[in-house]
Every structure is written in structure tokens, then in C-alpha cells.
């Protein structure tokens, strides 16, 4: 089954083209790594796939549903872990996750289960503003996984996490999760290890799209120059 199908997907912000005619197909269960310098359109691509931005041109299907026509059918099947944790600073981790559980119609026991999985039970009842960035990122991982999404959209998911925390979240959002993933990363070496398909973006355009083994390391390095 095809999880993602993009044909000439384009997105503009006013005059500026953030994403220009991106075309790719990703089978279910595989990982797409998206590489590129700042402003290349990586986060825009994730927001388009997450239904938060509508494409201005091209055809896009996520989990078999054409977007933006069937956005409603896709929401609830995707988990977006972006730069922003999408959590209220004045609420506790538990309160934030209970809110999202209710938004997704998820049983509330799942909140406790996830907090235990990311080793956060002890700090779960403290306001988020009192937690370190790394701990907030762990809560954001829980928020992303609450509704057991089929597709994970991950923008620098290990940002702010120390090695121990990376190990904790690895089975949840890493390759071992078995989910279809789109992984935006500034660490090409690591991304290439995790990916089945690699998309290089430069100024919104596709610089390369290939399996990691087929990629020219020189070409990857040039993307950041």
C-alpha cells in the first residue's frame, strides 16, 4: 500500500515558492528522510502532509486520501512532532495529554501508559514551563503518539534530547516503531541510516530523491553549501 503520493506538489507563501513541484511515492511502513538547509521547505512539506497547509498546485494523497479534499479522514491517523511541542506551558504534562486524548477520542489510561514509557511519571503533574526542553520534548513525543497514528511526521525529533532520552523514545518513534515515517533532519549521516528513501530539498525544489545506497555523498554535502 502507498502511504504517500505527491505529484508536482507546490506551496507558496505570497510571492515566495516554499515547495516547488515535489513528486515522490512512499510505500507504507517505510521511512522518508528529508534533508536540506534552513529555508529549503522541509517544515512546509511536513505541514502540507499534516493537512495544516493546503498545496497550491499538484496532487497529494496521504494514506490513500486525496488532500485537501479528504483532510478530515487523514486527521487522527497522523502524528506531527514539529519544532513547537503544541502544548500549553501553564498546564502540566498530564493535563496537556488528557486534553489531546479527549480531542482524539482516546481512552485516558493511555496518557499514564505513555508517560511511563518515556519515564516522565514523576514530573507529570508539574506545569510544563518548569520542565527542561528535553522533558517537554518527551511530552511532545507522547502527544504525537497518543492516538497511535499510522504516519509519523517528525521534524528533528531528537532535538533537545540527551542520549539516554534518545534511547527511551527510539522504540516509539524510531525505525523499530514499524510506522511509516517522514523524518526531517539536519544530521544527514543519521538520517541516511534510518531512511528507505531520501529527499534533498534546496529552495523548495527537489535536489535528489533516491535510496540511501544510491546517493552520492558529495551531492548530499553540496546541499548544505
Amino acid at each position: 500500500m502507498t502511504a504517500l503520493s505527491l505529484r508536482g506538489v507546490t506551496r507558496r507563501y505570497g510571492e515566495r515558492t516554499a515547495l516547488a513541484a515535489v513528486t515522490l511515492t512512499l510505500p507504507a511502513g517505510q521511512t522518508l528522510a528529508v534533508l536540506g538547509p534552513n529555508g529549503a521547505g522541509k517544515s512546509t512539506l511536513l505541514r502540507v502532509l499534516a493537512t495544516l497547509l493546503a498545496p497550491h498546485a499538484g496532487k497529494l494523497e496521504v494514506l490513500g486520501h486525496p488532500l485537501p479534499q479528504e483532510s478530515w479522514a487523514v486527521r487522527g491517523k497522523i502524528g506531527l512532532l514539529g519544532h513547537e511541542p503544541m502544548l500549553y506551558r501553564e498546564l502540566t504534562a498530564r493535563e496537556n495529554l488528557r486534553l489531546h486524548a479527549k480531542l482524539h477520542g482516546v481512552r485516558l489510561e493511555r496518557v499514564g501508559e505513555l508517560l511511563a514509557l518515556v519515564a516522565l511519571e514523576r514530573r507529570a503533574d508539574e506545569p510544563l514551563r518548569t520542565l527542561s526542553r528535553g522533558l517537554v520534548q518527551r511530552v511532545a513525543v507522547c502527544r504525537t503518539l497518543l492516538h497511535e497514528p499510522e504516519l509519523l511526521l517528525l521534524d528533528e525529533p531528537r532535538a533537545n534530547l540527551d542520549p539516554a532520552a534518545c534511547e527511551i523514545v527510539e522504540p516509539l518513534i524510531g525505525r523499530a516503531s514499524g510506522k511509516t515515517r517522514v523524518l526531517v533532519s539536519h544530521d544527514p549521516a543519521r538520517a541516511l541510516l534510518e531512511a528507505d528513501l531520501v529527499l534533498g530539498l534546496a529552495r523548495g525544489r527537489t535536489a535528489f530523491l533516491d535510496a540511501p545506497a544510491q546517493l552520492d555523498p558529495q551531492g548530499v554535502a553540496e546541499l548544505y553549501r
Binding site: R75, I78, L80, E84, M86, L87, R143
Partner: peptide
């Protein structure tokens, strides 16, 4: 708070 702390996006990503 919704706009500054991502509550809008969190809500929009849900099937609510």
C-alpha cells in the same frame, strides 16, 4: 495561548 503555544495546530490535527 492557542496561537503562541501551538494549541491551534494541536486542535487542527485532531479529528474533533
Amino acid at each position: 495561548a492557542d496561537a503562541e503555544q501551538g494549541g491551534f495546530d494541536g486542535f487542527l490535527l485532531s479529528p474533533a
